[in-house]
Design a protein around this nucleic acid. Structure first.
Lengths: 148, 148
DNA sequence: ATAAACCCTAAACCATAGTTCAGGGCAAAT
DNA sequence: ATTTGCCCTGAACTATGGTTTAGGGTTTAT
């Protein structure tokens, strides 16, 4: 007989909290999970495959609403293939944009790190401070720098 | 005289809402922004440079609390260079991990897209459905698939 | 047969990151 | 001078994604 798993097993395996799993179930993400006579959730291997997909979508920033939509499509069988694909393609675009944003911003952060690392970091920073102070002074605005 | 900008200008330029800017100010992210006699915020070029950094950190997922910490360090002048660098290096690690997660999950999603795209997608999906149904049946659990 | 470890639901609660609203001043054009 | 468009604050409200608590069954080991 195939093995089954408790909510605790699944929580540990996917590094989710038990309450998160129950919350996902409440939000309709786990329509495939059965319950035994005592009302306990009984997870199977194929349930785990679905949950893996849910985690993958969640970890790439898909909102729960959309994950539910995808799972609902899955429960409809082969007739929803086109809709599933469309949903995943849209999400892929989102991921690619995220990656670009991350890459661009990482460059900016790396520049700042470099310049804090350079031998004359203190001079660079001091001159930035002076520039800001001069600009504020010219405009008769307050000097924002801590004076201690 | 250097130009100054209204909150509306800044909102448009950084694609933030006016209320988000006011919210950031309330959270302590904009200690460098002055106000005129009427109590209106007056933004300068150097303020914009700070805000650019704030957006960069925000867009890479840094919580507001930590952005405030960074800005506070900046307002301390050159003496906080090491702390700023440490904070950014930690954040860089976070970004790199995010990138890895995204890349790994994108692979998984691409696989699903591929398999929904393949000529025998219907057969693949149908056989997955059958596998799940068989597993559930063997364990005397409910069939989760819509039967319409 | 009873304690310890699990499981359940419902409902309240929390954190984060904003948005909206009420009430009111300032500024620019007519 | 008054309308229109901006700006302000404080406080309430929202959305998202959970976590915690209360109250109560189940299962397992002793």
């Amino acid at each position: 007989m195939e093995p089954t798993f408790s909510i605790k097993d699944i929580a540990k395996y996917f590094n989710l909290s038990i309450s998160t799993i129950r919350y996902y179930d409440k939000r309709g993400l786990l329509p495939f999970v059965s319950k035994n006579d005592a009302g306990y959730r009984v997870f199977t291997r194929s349930d785990m495959a679905f949950i893996k997909t849910i985690c993958c979508l969640k970890d790439t920033g898909m909102p729960i609403r959309d994950i539910k939509q995808y799972i609902d499509y899955c429960m409809e069988g082969p007739k929803s293939i086109d809709k599933r694909k469309e949903l995943l393609l849209k999400h892929k675009q989102h991921i690619l944009m995220e990656e670009q944003t991350l890459k661009k911003n990482l460059k900016e952060i790396d520049q700042k790190i470099d310049h804090y690392t350079s031998g004359n970091a203190r001079e660079i920073v001091a001159s930035q401070v002076k520039y800001v102070q001069q600009e504020k002074k010219n405009l008769h605005l307050a000097d924002p720098f801590s004076t201690n």
